[in-house]
Design a protein around this nucleic acid. Sequence first.
DNA 1: TAACGATTTGGGAACGCTCCCATGGATACC
DNA 2: GGTATCCATGGGAGCGTTCCCAAATCGTTA
Lengths: 348, 348
Amino acid sequence: MTTQRPRSAGRPTLDAVAARAGVGRGTVSRVVNGSPQVSPEAREAVQKAIAELGYVPNRAARALVTQRTDSVALVVSESEDRFFGEPFFAPIVRGISSGLLDTPLQLWLSWAQSPAERERVEHHLTDQHVDGVLLISLHDEDPLPALLEERGLPTVLGGRSARMLGPGARPAYFVDVDNAGGARQAVEHLLSRGRAMVGTIAGPQDMGVGVARLTGYREAIAASGRPVDEDLIAYGDFSEASGATAMHRLLKERPGLDAVFVASDLMAAGALRVLRDVGRRVPEDVAVVGFEDAPVAQQTDPPLTTVHQDVEEMGRQMALLLAARIRGEASEEPYVLLDTYLVERQSG
Amino acid sequence: MTTQRPRSAGRPTLDAVAARAGVGRGTVSRVVNGSPQVSPEAREAVQKAIAELGYVPNRAARALVTQRTDSVALVVSESEDRFFGEPFFAPIVRGISSGLLDTPLQLWLSWAQSPAERERVEHHLTDQHVDGVLLISLHDEDPLPALLEERGLPTVLGGRSARMLGPGARPAYFVDVDNAGGARQAVEHLLSRGRAMVGTIAGPQDMGVGVARLTGYREAIAASGRPVDEDLIAYGDFSEASGATAMHRLLKERPGLDAVFVASDLMAAGALRVLRDVGRRVPEDVAVVGFEDAPVAQQTDPPLTTVHQDVEEMGRQMALLLAARIRGEASEEPYVLLDTYLVERQSG
DNA sequence: TAACGATTTGGGAACGCTCCCATGGATACC
DNA sequence: GGTATCCATGGGAGCGTTCCCAAATCGTTA
């Protein structure tokens, strides 16, 4: 009397199916994988056996030989609270899901915040648990992208980190919004409306978006033939409160300013609040243009003129790019840059 | 000259490490898995070889023999928009993460909304890709829990579906808030303050929470010796707008009512808005008590008295329960029921 | 009728790991 | 000094698939 190790809940194997259907392993495998090289009778017998036994292929065994798992990870380097709070994440997840829809790839999302979590995630990414990785909300000095590429794991970044922007940047697959171009558009719009002293509330300079949008501002000002006045630049961290603080600073340094380009809608909302508090009319006295076209842009008073970015499309493109890399299709361009356009509302 | 199949990016195997360290496979495996049965010299040689080669164990190979993947799935049967919009999900994810912190288990989140997504998720759950599953936001007729248990996959539900509430309910592992008890508390509170005609705005009756909170209301009214007046019961779908509509209906049917227990804070916010619009003072004319203690409860006018539920704790308990099941530890109680308490603010 | 090509089929080998058992050397005990 | 005990060690077997090649079967043609 031998004691059997209880194979996981006695799950039927491919061998069991083959035995029951009276065929060989190869034939069962062919049926399961949809190969056309199977006679109708054999196919039917196998399908019957599969149904009767409730057979489901073991992914570990399959992955061991195919080197594929048919799943990809979306890793968010952000706290749960910011993840749920910021308007950026819902549409990007939606876009990624839709981009993956007609691939065999299953999306798994995970957070990598605390050092313990990060280490665990890293392990699960590098040990062939997934076929590819999407990274969003990267902070500047994050070593994860380099590590993953080194391990040969296809990776696509959503948005560039600051050091990917300059010349000589390490190459990487990414999808990003044309932040500099959008910012330029916004500032050119203000200038074309006759605004004479255009300031900006920039984002944090250790993040790619922050740097790029400020660059666009500088470029547009320079292109108009004016010198860039550093006192017309204030910095925030994308939050409403920081936008308010920065607006105060700007008004103090340059009371004569008549327009502001703000690097995020949330900061713009803060700026609008301050302008109202100090009695400046928008857009008559000071015009305000934001960036993002987040839902909040429609609820400010007055509604915010802002640069629209298509976050959902960004997610979709990330998914497509990753799926192509996993399939081994080389694309000439390793990145996608999405256009932006100005949405004119009442603030400027 | 033989052509080698390009093993996944030439990743080093355990054999390669063994060869380099000059030891056998068994020894490498022991080092990797932290077995104490290894001499210091051997351990050091192996660790050196691992570092030099950049070896990472192949999870598929390991899973094939151990039948474990050290990862669990959190499956959300909800659209991305509701997931990001409802205040319930952020704290439950936070709780689950924290509960998993001192286990080896990696959390992967996925959505199962469209039929295509559902099928893909089902496959990835049943084919041994994960060791266990957490399900939240289950709709009533969802076949997923039954399917998973049938396949022998440890599953823990967050919240019960309606048909798990009555007697004769199919047994399952779950963590839930004592919804009926909380509702009873709320209604008893209103009655104890001398309210004479207490109505309720109930949630959808195809969801466990909806049913349970209404049951609590009925029990509390019955316990006070009054008959339950069906015209004092209106139904909503947990949204702000539906709360407003239901409040209108209640006022029309029973103009004399002087208190309402509302099954969610969001609906309560809608009810408060209507009461203000029609000129009823809260709490003087009509007392209002909500359920959830969501952030919105502190921002209503007046601030909402409500039943507090600890969603983060719920997540943590789900994680602990699942981890115990995966370890094979049998718990006497297959479920956890969390207490609630009343938070008295100004509305009732 | 024989020979040939096309199609279907079975099963060995391999994927990279863990488990387990037999081996050997060192240590302890009488 | 001989034997029993202990522990580190190497490596075979096996996990459940896919891949591939050789064999079997079928239909077609000369």
